[in-house]
Amino acid sequence: MRKIKAAVIRQQGGPFQIEDLMQDDPRSDEVRVRIVAVGMCHTDMVARDQLYAVPLPVVLGHEGSGVVEQIGSHVKKVAVGDHVVLTYMWCGHCKPCLRGDLTYCEHFYALNFNGAREDGSTSTFTADNTSEPVHDHFFGQSSFGTFALVHERNVIKVPNDAPLELLGPLGCGIQTGAGAVINALKVNPGSSFAAFGGGAVGLSAVMAARAAGATTIISADVVPARLILAMELGATHTINSRETDPVEAVRKITGGGADFTLESSGRPAVLRQAIDALAIRGTCGIVGAPALGTEASFDVNGVMTAGKRIIGIIEGDSNPDLFIPALVELYQQGRFPFDKQVKFYSLDQINQAAEDSEKGSTIKPIIRL
């Protein structure tokens, strides 16, 4: 076993507590990664607050980047010393996985939210009582700590000349927004796109829409600073939803409605706006994560007679082994400047990072280890 330091959630709502823990050595198909930095995502707060039933105590964190320190005997995908980004976990043997729909793995919830490996075991224990497990493997990684023990499957090798401390959010939030646009909605050149929500996911979608060739790109949010940043990242128009009816504004800007919309706030009322703002035959993607059981409504005839589509999207419908390196390359070419969203914190500032994220004063916190 190896001694590590990690942020632990022991009760609903937190706080994150920095603790010394013990971590198993890698199994034959596992990799130990020394975490360099880890993004903080809305889903971490969803789990902290028990909107999703994640067992406690638990180490969260699911946007890790780091350096491979140790590999199991059967690992061939990476080698010691490789720079890697950690992403979501999938089983690899169910029907969706076998046909390439990794983000719709039949065991996705269990593997990413049950706080354990697929066989139900954990690899992390309290330092003074190694018979007391601490739940881990959140999104297959639990990277709010100095080391993460992960499966070979969800480790993505990235170039050594890329800025490793920036890359962790590509594993979830940024992959979700960019992938929703490129992989799921398939936004095409000359089209119109509106992002409802200007957090890390929504702004990543704005950047991706620009890279995909959309010519009308709208960002709707209630935080003025986010709208200013959206213009820097590629938006052609912004809407402050506190001051203006966003549906009417999108229709006016686009001349009838957007070809594509994306809802990332997790608010049912905002989802309704994103659907209503669509053009004839338009498509709305849903990536916002509300509490389990949340319901929303829409005008059935308004959807049916206009041929609108509403689709759910997980992790940007991304194959991370292909999509994450592509995003790194776009960043290195100056075509995907996601670093403009980022503010860095130390591990002992993790509760401040969470607070700043929830207030909207920081778009994408990254915890440096």
Rank of each mutant, 00 (worst) to 15 (best):
residue 180 A to L: 08
residue 342 V to F: 03
residue 189 P to G: 04
residue 214 A to Q: 13
residue 107 H to Y: 13
residue 355 E to T: 13
residue 171 G to C: 06
residue 46 V to E: 05
residue 184 A to Y: 01
residue 359 K to H: 09
residue 34 R to Q: 15
residue 317 D to G: 11
residue 51 L to C: 02
residue 280 I to V: 15
residue 354 A to V: 12
residue 104 Y to T: 06
residue 331 Y to V: 04
residue 178 A to G: 09
residue 191 S to P: 02
residue 111 L to H: 05
residue 129 N to T: 01
residue 288 G to M: 12
residue 25 D to K: 14
residue 38 V to R: 02
residue 129 N to D: 15
residue 33 V to Q: 10
residue 156 I to T: 08
residue 105 C to H: 12
residue 230 A to Q: 10
residue 301 N to R: 10
residue 99 R to M: 12
residue 195 A to Y: 02
residue 239 I to H: 08
residue 154 N to I: 02
residue 293 G to P: 06
residue 13 G to W: 08
residue 128 D to Y: 00
residue 346 S to V: 00
residue 298 F to Y: 15
residue 100 G to F: 12
residue 141 Q to I: 02
residue 303 V to F: 04
residue 94 C to R: 12
residue 323 F to N: 11
residue 119 D to V: 02
residue 48 R to N: 04
residue 351 N to F: 00
residue 337 P to D: 03
residue 264 S to A: 15
residue 28 S to L: 01
residue 67 V to S: 03
residue 329 E to T: 14
residue 228 I to C: 04
residue 332 Q to C: 04
residue 307 G to S: 11
residue 217 I to V: 10
residue 41 C to H: 11
residue 106 E to A: 14
residue 321 D to Q: 15
residue 34 R to S: 13
residue 348 D to R: 04
residue 366 I to K: 12
residue 367 I to T: 10
residue 105 C to G: 06
residue 356 D to Q: 07
residue 161 D to Y: 09
residue 294 T to C: 08
residue 41 C to F: 09
residue 258 A to G: 11
residue 55 P to D: 09
residue 220 A to C: 15
residue 214 A to Y: 11
residue 15 P to N: 10
residue 81 G to Q: 06
residue 342 V to Y: 05
residue 224 P to L: 07
residue 322 L to M: 10
residue 348 D to T: 13
residue 161 D to R: 08
residue 102 L to P: 01
residue 363 I to M: 09
residue 165 E to M: 06
residue 15 P to W: 05
residue 38 V to E: 07
residue 292 L to M: 11
residue 22 M to A: 14
residue 359 K to Q: 13
